[in-house]
Design a protein around this nucleic acid. Structure first.
Lengths: 256, 256
DNA sequence: GAAATAGTGTCTCTAAGACACTATGAT
DNA sequence: ATCATAGTGTCTTAGAGACACTATTTC
């Protein structure tokens, strides 16, 4: 039984201890680019990931996920928050723990157990960063670009895991709100879902999402101060109804 | 930027490194107890968790989750598998990574970052263990009992997190199969779901689960070698149809 | 009128939900 | 006959899915 081993580990330090426990953060954002047509049109949206270029051994010059070593005085989550803030100046965002990466030999510096987090950041929160930082060593890449690069360590695997997770969560939770303004149109929501999950397609999306009872009121219409429906014509000639997410968190089940 | 810190950590070891990275395993099982009635009846099922009694400082004498320190030559998952096997003699079971526990001060032995896993084990796989081991230091507890104990470290928090996870997964994935024999009746399935998620209730459960298309064929009827429906009268006078899980993994979505 | 987005009308068909009813076989 | 489990019959209503159609505004 290992309890005895534990004890001797503690008392005599006869077993090797890890050389570090960093966190790595997969920061996703959706960029929007206006189409230059004569008419108003929906923007082009792309899922992008933030990478930093390494300046030292190992993997000198290669792109990697931002991150850094945990300190004794902080939890892994706090470590990731701190690193995220140091890299992007962003706080108070949706960050979830992804997985632990501990395959022996994954880091040439020694026995290093990495903890990956996934952060979803609205594009506008990354705008300041661009002004602050030298754009050459911290950059956004589209997913296709990032996966085509030779990333440092096992960061390609981490990125793939994070992608899978964010795609699953996009369809089963309301994280779409992390990529949207407070008030949004149905088209915007649909575009965001499709940007993250390209295979997503619902012919009667507006019908399903607005037919209450079935969708249990995940979103609701926004009214202006006169109680009239609030509309937006940012993307279209005909103004569209604005919606917001409610507090409701949907409970999915395969048995009901 | 922490990349510099990383490098100096590596070159000069001027930063403190963790004192250990263990894994802790929450092993759930569902026990079945026959009712002693005159007629055949469904058994009583209870969700139970395996705990071990500590024999050393810290938390000497208190109950804790089984687990132990990771070695440099293995991944965290391998570590959990090894510990699980050492504790219970069980291999090849459904084990998923739960979370990392790294709050400073969580372990009086030092800076110890724990990785929790959740394992689902069929009752019959724990039977041998009972014969092998001294029953006084390794025992199954019902969830209520376990949560009423003063568990070592932050194991109460881990147990609560694991419970929440297994409840969610019971409703959204087919992990019910981990607690069931290969072939089972609808009542057994229903009981297993209710044992893990007491609030679960579906009036027309048999209707919904067997009406194909809606449930996308998660389960299928078992036929005997003559192509006739295979029945079981273990729990009832009237024999019940046996079912098995298919390979299908359901894709849930709040948007469709 | 053409373009681009935002919806609605209307049909069919499946399934959810409720609940009373029948079926089986041992004691 | 009774009990405990295992189903079925039948009705109502909701909504999924398809797809053609209308609406709004600017160029």
């Amino acid at each position: 039984m290992d309890i005895n081993e534990n004890e001797s580990t503690y008392t005599s330090r006869k077993y090797r201890t890890p050389d570090g426990a960093p966190s790595d953060i997969v920061i996703f954002t959706i960029t929007t680019t206006e189409k230059h047509t004569t008419k108003k049109a929906l923007p082009i949206r792309e899922l992008q990931v933030l990478l930093v270029q390494r300046k030292q051994w190992p993997y000198d010059g290669q792109w990697a996920l931002p991150g850094g070593f945990c300190r004794e005085t902080e939890s892994m989550y706090d470590c990731a928050l701190r690193e995220l803030q140091e890299e992007t100046g962003v706080a108070d965002i949706h960050m979830t723990y992804l997985n632990v990466y501990s395959t022996p030999g994954r880091d040439p510096r020694g026995w290093i157990i990495s903890h990956a987090f996934t952060a979803l950041v609205h594009e506008r929160l990354l705008v300041e960063r661009r002004a602050d930082t030298d754009a050459s060593d911290v950059r956004l890449f589209t997913i296709e670009e990032a996966l085509a690069l030779e990333l440092a360590f096992d960061h390609r695997e981490i990125l793939n895991d994070a992608l899978q997770r964010v795609r699953e969560q996009m369809l089963t939770t309301t994280i779409a709100k992390e990529f949207l303004p407070e008030e949004f149109t149905i088209s915007e929501l649909y575009q965001v879902i499709q940007t993250v999950v390209p295979s997503f397609e619902e012919k009667n999306f507006i019908r399903k999402i607005t037919s209450t009872q079935s969708r249990q009121g995940i979103i609701e219409e926004v009214l202006d101060r006169n109680g009239e429906p609030k509309l937006s014509n940012r993307y279209s000639q005909r103004a569209a109804q604005l919606y917001r997410f409610t507090e409701l968190t949907p409970q999915l089940s395969i048995y009901s």
